[in-house]
Amino acid sequence: MAAPIALHLEFGGGAELLFGGVKDHQVTLPGQSQPWDMKQLLVWIRGNLLKERPELFVQGDTVRPGILVLINDADWELMGELSYELQDQDNVVFISTLHGG
């Protein structure tokens, strides 16, 4: 049983509009048997944070193409993308590069 972890989530480039216009979110993920990874985080965001139009943020089990993900200020492609295991106090940023957010 892993302990609950605290994360700092940030949305930018228009992605914040889907989250009630709030850019910064301080969240705590509840403890669960296996460690949290990005894939689970996206499911959690979809269920708990996303205010509207989920298809504009997640597609399939990953983020919509055109939305960049940074984990602790580094490209998530370097961190293993969906399989990255989240640590306590991690900083995850989502930036939309799409026209109109």
């Binding site: 960049l68 940074l70 940023v93 109109g100």
Partner: peptide, 26 residues
Amino acid sequence: SSKEIAFYNRMFGVPSIFIPGLDTKA
């Protein structure tokens, strides 16, 4: 590419403002 630009702006603190346009949330 838009990825390079977004990363540069983020890493080096270039301010930008998001303004909803015609196709926002479309």
